[in-house]
């Protein structure tokens, strides 16, 4: 999505296309959520052993975190493949 072989030398000046902008927005939104989740565990200073979000409900959130990591990894890999193929298509044209 960020491929622009015509003006490779103007790396900083070239414009990002719309898809890249959308991706950035989504990524920053996800980052925001990640920080807010870690903030939930901070308030309430309990004395019992480590009762934060990640350890509640039979630690199901740990499973969610692991599965989300795998899913994100796979999706990022798909995006990378997609961009590589787009590049190849541009080169063969």
């Amino acid at each position: 999505m960020d491929n622009n072989p015509e003006n490779k030398d103007k790396y900083f000046e070239r414009k990002k296309d719309d898809a890249m902008k959308v991706c950035k927005k989504i990524f920053s939104l996800l980052l925001f959520f990640a920080f807010s989740i870690s903030a939930w565990g901070q308030n309430g200073n309990k004395t019992t052993q480590m009762e934060d979000t990640m350890r509640s409900n039979g630690r199901i959130y740990v499973v969610v975190a692991v599965m989300l990591t795998i899913l994100t990894g796979l999706i990022l890999y798909m995006v990378r493949l997609d961009r590589k193929i787009s590049k190849l298509e541009k080169e063969t044209k």
């Binding site: 991706c23 989504i26 969610v64 989300l68 899913l71 994100t72 999706i75």
Partner: peptide, 14 residues
């Protein structure tokens, strides 16, 4: 639709 797919799958997993 690729972004939609990713978001729907994240929703599904969570």
């Amino acid at each position: 639709w690729k972004i939609a797919s990713a978001l729907l799958l994240i929703y599904t997993f969570v």
